[in-house]
Design a protein around this nucleic acid. Structure first.
Lengths: 255, 255
DNA sequence: GCAAAAGTGTTGGGTATACACCCATGG
DNA sequence: CCATGGGTGTATACCCAACACTTTTGC
């Protein structure tokens, strides 16, 4: 008996910044897991898994992320559903992929082991399935969205300096920005507010610390519900009502 | 036996412009189908159906569209995957939704019948499932994308005047545009090129006809493969390899 | 000629970029 | 007092909305 519809899975592209605060520029990294069975046994792949009956897609992605890296993301958004027929040898799998941003500090203490390792986002090895293409698309979305939203904040902690925020932009967009103009552009958006604190200890004039403006979302995703943080949902439902059906004459609909 | 993963389906939001060339402003319309079984029997819903083993997601959406309205879209793009647990009473269904643009002229002769009808996009009745929310999101995407891409062309035929193109923008964005500035903005993009033809028969100075610049895509969707027009695919695959699995200790991956 | 739409020119205001300059701190 | 980055000022270029104006057709 052939399956009436393709298998369904969720995967996640997780980005973090590494090497912030050093002399060399910070870069994007992401965690991958080693496959322990065929196909592509031994190759690195995006963390992923099946979707449980009781959890939404975003919840499945969040759980996934937590189980792989023990991290909770500051930002989580659906990327795309990948479903070409040949993307998984010997099976038909449709993957709904999410992308996440975690802050550098947390990523430092992230789980890493024999089967989980962080890689620089633009020096990836040959991954399993179509995962290289998926990462490419995630990177494109990240860089695009960086220019018209405030997601950069998701890479940082509660308090940060403008230089740190600028470093995020420079690392992701791969070009240097004028500090003076950057300052003006940022506070023209009112997305962050200055605190009275300053960061001392540097060997220069101590910069002011800023925080998020809570009344702003990190990104405007339109009328979609904001992606919930990964807390387990409770409602459940069961079984049945499958659609077999007639051909062209009668138009169909599904949820 | 509970299903190992939710059911999978594809739905499509199809937009066309109606009332172009009349005195009153043109408006957005979309076709809906009437549900002929529970749940939501009798309610209007987005056209949709299951995904066949041999077709990609975009192909499924295109087939769907063809079967419902006998139209082929000028533009087809994935919208979003909807998968909250409670969106379909008595079942767990994940819907991958596409949106499409068809040209007005074609939409006029589109299939319409007892169970298929066109509605104005912003005066919809209460639809089945979460379909009202889906249409809202599709409208948001359409209006957004209208401002930074050339998808407006997908509403028009091979040759068109600038006034017609402007009418498309005005109908979608719901505001009037200055003809002079519109002209400059459009041809600054080099997305359309003037022909030597003019449209006579009006009672004014005959406007020049334009055509697409073939070397431009309608939208920049990054490294994603451009959505194919709905021609049947041939490759197929069969069966098996399901993932049961262990809990948190060992990180997982899926296609 | 007149109405109406096609198409061009001009101008003022806002925004971005480049860069000069001052400020505050550690050494 | 000097090196270094924090932070401000400003001149220029560019883009965009508004609107005056010319052109070309049908009647």
């Amino acid at each position: 008996m052939i399956p009436p519809s393709p298998q369904l899975a969720v995967s996640t592209v997780i980005f973090a910044l590494r090497g912030t605060g050093t002399d060399s520029p910070a870069t994007l990294w992401l965690p991958l897991v080693r496959r322990i069975r065929e196909p592509f046994k031994g190759r690195w792949a995006l963390p992923g898994g099946p979707i449980r009956a009781s959890e939404s897609l975003a919840d499945a992605a969040g759980r996934n992320l937590l189980e792989t890296t023990a991290l909770t993301p500051n930002y989580l958004e659906q990327l795309y559903a990948f479903g070409t027929v040949d993307r998984s040898p010997g099976a038909r799998v449709v993957s709904i992929v999410y992308w996440a941003l975690v802050q550098a500090e947390e990523a430092e203490r992230a789980a890493e082991g024999e089967n989980v390792r962080w890689f620089p986002a633009d020096e990836l090895p040959g991954l399993a399935f179509d995962h290289n293409a998926i990462v490419d698309y995630a990177l494109w979305r990240l860089r695009n969205k960086m220019e018209y939203s405030r997601i950069a904040n998701a890479f940082l902690g509660e308090r940060f300096t403008l230089a740190q925020l600028r470093e995020v932009y420079e690392a992701v967009l791969l070009r240097s920005l004028d500090p003076a103009n950057f300052r003006r552009q940022i506070d023209a958006t009112k997305a962050i507010v200055p605190t009275e604190e300053r960061q001392s200890g540097g060997r220069h004039r101590p910069p002011r610390l800023y925080r998020y403006n809570e009344s702003f979302d990190l990104a405007d995703n339109g009328p979609l519900p904001p992606s919930s943080s990964p807390s387990p949902t409770s409602s459940s439902s069961s079984s049945s009502s499958s659609s077999s059906s007639s051909a062209s004459p009668s138009p169909r609909s599904t949820p």
